[in-house]
Computed example of a mutant assay.
Amino acid sequence: MATHDQRGLIAVFYGSIVFFSLICLFPFVLAVSGSLSTESRLAAEGYSLLPRGFTLDTYRFMFASKATQIFQAYGVSLFVTVVGTISAVLVTTAYAYVITVRSFRYRNWFAFIAYFTMLFSGGTLPWYILATKYYHLDDKLVGLFVPYLLNVFLMYLQANYFRSIPHEVTESAQMDGAGHMRIFFSIMLPLGRVGLVTISLFYALQFWNDFYLPLLLVSDQNLYTIQYMMYSMMANIQYLASGANTQISGVVIAPPLESAKMAMTCLTVLPIAILYPFLQRYFVKGIIVGSVKG
């Protein structure tokens, strides 16, 4: 039975978590409310938790001429996220397994090479030249996920989880004649599934939210991700709202600038926001297990 002081401490603890959760949720609620508000009332009265003059005009404005491109951008982002996550997890776990195999004499060298890349980089320009002139990743779908196939931090996270698996398990498998491929796919990956889910979620978030690679490597609109598509649309709306081109064929254009920003935020964040609560527990569990050996 918990004492009175313990119950009070638990209440304070849960109250703090609820309060912090509300603080984190507050900006997203404002974004949803702003996207459903009229531009005039939003500009005059500001943001609120409830829509000011409920309307779907902003979404109609966005989808009126760009519906096909938006759905295509969603498809590109979904493909890059799924294929990129699977590929990155396979590369990351394979590298993590290599540096944890005790019989591999060069495992420390491979670990050092990976760690070295965390400290030093050639810079953006050399990377861009390498990616475009030598690897020819520009305006190619693979260019949106190949440069991110190995995250060193996540690799070390998975490696620590592999090290927490008793060595006797792999040793007995080797005595039974199992090779490294069999051990990796039949033993290490199933036993390391918590770590796999954790790094998979991190990779999925990275690929879905990435704006850097499309900005540098993509000029073909058919390869725009949803993030880059929203950026392009926002630039066009800001140009129209700036007054540089507010009248076309005698018709005055008044684009919904502020509400469009909120609508674009919802369109890009909502898929992840829906998925995250169902998988959130794996973040904490995987990080705890992967960061502490034993």
Rank of each mutant, 00 (worst) to 15 (best):
Q227P: 01
Y156T: 07
Y231S: 12
N245K: 14
P214V: 00
A173K: 13
G15C: 07
I183N: 04
D210N: 10
L50E: 12
R281P: 02
L279R: 14
T170A: 09
N151G: 10
A263C: 05
S37W: 04
M62E: 10
Y115Q: 09
I274S: 09
G179Q: 11
F207A: 02
C24P: 04
F184A: 01
E45N: 15
F120G: 03
Y231D: 13
D220S: 06
S21W: 08
A67F: 15
T81V: 00
R41W: 11
Y276V: 08
N209T: 00
V269W: 10
T55L: 09
I113D: 06
A114D: 06
A2Y: 14
F278G: 02
S232H: 15
V251Q: 13
Y115G: 08
A31C: 09
C266Y: 00
A96P: 01
L150H: 00
L189H: 06
Q227V: 04
K293W: 07
F110I: 14
P256F: 00
F211E: 10
M229C: 13
Q247A: 11
S164E: 08
S103R: 14
Y106G: 06
Q221G: 03
T265N: 13
I287A: 07
T198N: 02
E168D: 14
F145Q: 00
S172F: 07
I187A: 08
V289M: 15
M181S: 08
G294L: 07
S242P: 00
V83I: 14
N209A: 04
A178W: 10
N236Y: 14
A67I: 12
K261P: 01
T170C: 08
Y156M: 13
S186C: 07
A273L: 15
S121R: 10
V29G: 04
F207T: 01
